[in-house]
Design a protein around this nucleic acid. Structure first.
Lengths: 124, 124
DNA sequence: TGCCTAGGTTGACAGATTTCGAAACAGAGT
DNA sequence: ACTCTGTTTCGAAATCTGTCAACCTAGGCA
């Protein structure tokens, strides 16, 4: 099941599924179906923190061994959450030697941010 | 009942739960716990579309009677999804005569967008 | 080479949460 | 009273969360 969404997300992060703020134009059902899983992936406190730790890593990437100790959860649980973020297209993993490093994929996050951008009402 | 959940969200949308991009600074567990539910609320294709339809309504608000026909789901189901968005603090409802109108609350969405903003590597 | 240990992932499972619709309910208009 | 709009309640099916056990890969060492 996650395979399907992962594929779609890969497509969009390569391309141009959305860019218009959500408040300026109705999202087509198709687009919503593609982007909702990304929001869902961020819709868990642990995953939101993981995403933040990965994205804010000074070197651009961070070892799982540095992530796990920050939570009271077990290793497998963290691994599952990381897989969710991976399937959503928000991060990618690379094994270098003994350790696995996670890196953020800014493309999709940028799209989500653009989607949420609120058009300044009057102003101008 | 919606008052309770609305309170926490009201606090944050009034105040300073977050503002820093997720990729610039680690989100504290506390902040993650507060913001994750908002992402979770957007993490469903139907709710994402609903949010978009509400936020992009030309008059700033939209009647439930205009929302329901756009989906193949039953009335109660749409109502449930709307309640989820309400509880998350993303929209608010007002009954005017026979019909109920939904309006977006941009505050929280702005915060989420700021959180997802990706720091430009160059600049600064 | 063969064996051992450590880091992470995967699979399977119980318990909690979500999703959806049928039926019942509340508000407003006729 | 009756109708129409939308919400709430309730229950069933599906999904999600977290853990243990098993597995795989990489590295160290005799």
């Amino acid at each position: 099941m996650s395979k399907q969404t992962a594929l779609a997300v890969t497509d969009l992060s390569a391309g141009a599924v959305c860019c218009q703020p959500l408040s300026e134009q109705r999202i087509p059902a198709e687009t919503a179906a593609v982007l909702a899983p990304a929001f869902k992936a961020l819709g868990d406190p642990v995953r939101l923190q993981l995403m933040s730790m990965i994205a804010s890593a000074p070197s651009g990437e961070i070892c799982v061994c540095d992530l796990t100790p920050s939570f009271t959860l077990s290793g497998p649980t963290i691994s599952h959450h990381l897989k969710t973020l991976r399937d959503a297209g928000l991060v990618e993993a690379e094994r270098r030697g003994t350790w696995v490093h996670y890196r953020a994929r800014p493309g999709l996050m940028t799209q989500l941010a653009a989607l949420l951008a609120v058009h300044e009402p009057a102003a101008s």
